[in-house]
């Protein structure tokens, strides 16, 4: 298990190699030391004191400790929270390799693109209830919402709101994004309405939209339901 808390999760006053050695000894059949060190990418950290590590380094060491016992199932609770972009990429590359050896990795995250890119199966939980369960692509497909982006000199939000299928309007400068449940109808309506748009672009929803749609749908259902 790998958790992110306030502390480092590592014992103060020892070298990384000593902490790893201890945890390995606590298991009857630990993974090979070389494998663990390589998988977690900590060979350069072995001689460091645990209190001298950066956030990303400490997370890698914690990961090494989590896999030292050669587990078949690994839980990661928001593993990349304290990492920069580079660290995050390296981390997920390591995870992929680790998973390809036939292990299961279960992780919780608020970075939805992370779930989309990494996970084979995504489960969306809203207020303690499972609202969707499947591969990221299926989840996204379930959401019919599309994005219509165009550029216009003087955006007029009230006007776009009334277009067919539009559920949300986002305006930044001269850029307008319409979120629509029926992109074709909205596009036709947009042309008919005589709006002087440029650079129209229609794209599918991202997992974040799917997430919002899924969680909102359940909220509505809860509100409508009896008692």
């Amino acid at each position: 298990m790998l958790q992110t808390g306030t502390g480092s999760g590592l014992p103060p006053g020892v070298k990384v190699s000593e902490a790893l050695e201890l945890v390995r000894r606590l298991y009857a059949h630990p993974a090979s030391l070389t494998n663990t060190v390589a998988q977690a990418g900590i060979s350069s950290l072995l001689g460091c004191r645990t209190n001298a590590l950066s956030g990303g380094e400490a997370q890698r060491v914690r990961f090494a400790l989590a896999i030292a016992g050669d587990p078949e199932l690994v839980f990661l609770d928001e593993p990349t929270v304290a990492m920069d972009v580079e660290g995050r990429r390296t981390f997920w590359r390591m995870m992929r390799q680790f998973g390809e050896e036939g292990r299961t990795i279960l992780f919780a995250t608020h970075h939805l693109e992370e779930a989309d890119q990494i996970a084979d199966r995504v489960i969306v939980i809203n207020h303690g209830r499972v609202v969707a369960d499947g591969p990221g692509a299926t989840l996204k497909a379930a959401v019919t919402a599309r994005h219509l982006r165009f550029v216009i000199t003087n955006p007029d939000p009230d006007r776009y709101d009334r277009l067919e299928g539009v559920t949300d309007v986002r305006i930044s400068g001269t850029g307008v994004t319409l979120i629509s449940l029926d992109a074709d109808a909205t596009a036709r309506d947009l042309v008919k309405s005589g709006v002087d748009f440029k650079d129209l672009e229609v794209t599918g929803a991202c997992l974040e939209d799917a997430f919002v749609a899924l969680t909102e749908r359940t909220r509505c259902r809860e509100d409508d339901g009896p008692g």
Binding site: G9, L10, P11, P12, V23, A66
Partner: peptide, 9 residues
């Protein structure tokens, strides 16, 4: 020591 999460590990 417990506040660092090491004990939990």
């Amino acid at each position: 020591e417990r506040s660092t999460g090491w004990a939990r590990q």
